[in-house]
């Protein structure tokens, strides 16, 4: 669907036919059309080398597209980059900090680089230091901070100038559960007022599921699916999943008997874990047990769960390992 100028102006982030190719090989990003709305948390998922980082770098204006356009609040990033920059906040995947500078000096420096007036900057610095529980370490050089504190500061730096669009590139990588919970809480609050937009890339399906309003799965530079997590989960099949741990790989006859109860997934023919996905799977459970035990297989454990985003991800991108 071709976006009109009005559509683009109403969107936080939009891309039109965005592509990036390098000297040799296929396109890293291939004709990507994104429409991210204000107040939305947009999850961008994909296996390693899918084109997520390339996409993010083009959205930030760090990488020049081979073709296509990027718009932030209706402004094309190549022509109005200086104006667009103030509206963008970025939390890079790697914590980029100056080891000799303190926590407050980092926030001050980045704020000044975005032309935040002194008084506002001081107030915002105080607020963020409090919000991310950095108060005790405010005068510590960052080389003395723990990994978790460094990541919290990294996120605070993305917010110090009050951006409309916040790009979080794997923000929870390396965080302990407490810090991750704090981070998720902050991300949810960011979009509460419906004004700000968050673009999130992550390898944590749980994180994407919990935080994202919509999720796009990218692979080989192409957007494979894009919808809400619930729709995506439903798209791979109604019902629940019964996972069973067996004492040995089931025979072909046992597998055939299982397929009468639902869709069977087995990572390899010799794998001892088998999943059966289907509607009313619990009512079918006795029949499944009979099918397996009659072939001499012992069931060591079972787990019943609903479809997850990971199921969607694996279904869309396959199970083969990436570079």
């Amino acid at each position: 669907m071709l976006l009109t100028s009005e559509d683009i102006a109403s969107l936080s982030v939009a891309t039109r036919n965005l592509s990036k190719g390098y000297d040799k090989g296929p396109l890293a990003v291939d004709s990507l059309d994104l429409s991210i709305r204000p107040g939305e948390v947009f999850g961008l998922l994909g296996p390693n080398g899918a084109g997520k980082t390339t996409t993010i770098r083009m959205l930030l204006g760090l990488l020049r597209p081979t073709c296509g356009q990027v718009f932030v609040h209706g402004e094309e990033i190549t022509t109005g980059r200086q104006r667009v920059k103030s509206r963008l906040g970025v939390c890079p995947q790697e914590t980029v900090l100056w080891p000799e500078l303190t926590v407050s000096e980092h926030l001050y420096l980045i704020g000044r680089m975005y032309d935040v007036p002194g008084k506002t900057l001081r107030a915002e610095t105080e607020r963020l230091i409090g919000e991310f529980s950095l108060g005790e370490k405010r005068n510590q050089p960052t080389k003395r901070l723990s990994g978790g504190l460094r990541r919290r500061l990294n996120l605070a730096m993305a917010l110090v100038h009050g951006p409309d669009v916040i790009m979080l590139d794997e923000p929870s990588a390396g965080l302990d559960p407490q810090s991750r919970a704090l981070l998720w809480e902050r991300v949810k609050q960011l979009t509460k007022d419906g004004r700000r937009t968050v673009v999130l890339t992550t390898h944590s399906m749980e994180e994407a599921d919990r935080l994202s309003d919509r999720v796009g799965i990218l692979d080989h530079g192409k957007m494979l699916v894009l919808d809400t997590p619930d729709v995506l989960k439903r798209s791979i099949g109604e019902g629940d999943v019964l996972e069973m741990e067996l004492d040995r790989a089931p025979s072909s006859e046992a597998m055939e008997a299982l397929r009468r109860h639902g869709r069977v997934e087995q990572q390899a023919a010799t794998a001892t874990t088998v999943s059966v996905r289907g509607l009313d799977i619990m009512q079918r459970f006795p029949g499944i047990v009979v099918a397996l035990t009659s072939s001499g297989v012992v069931i060591r454990g079972t787990r019943l769960r609903p479809n997850t985003l990971e199921d969607v991800f694996l279904k869309m991108t396959g199970r083969s390992l990436r570079d």
Partner: peptide
């Protein structure tokens, strides 16, 4: 190489 320049490039720095 440590990403500081890229971090600064994201700001309004000329």
């Amino acid at each position: 190489t440590q990403g500081h320049l890229e971090r600064l490039k994201l700001t309004r720095m000329s």
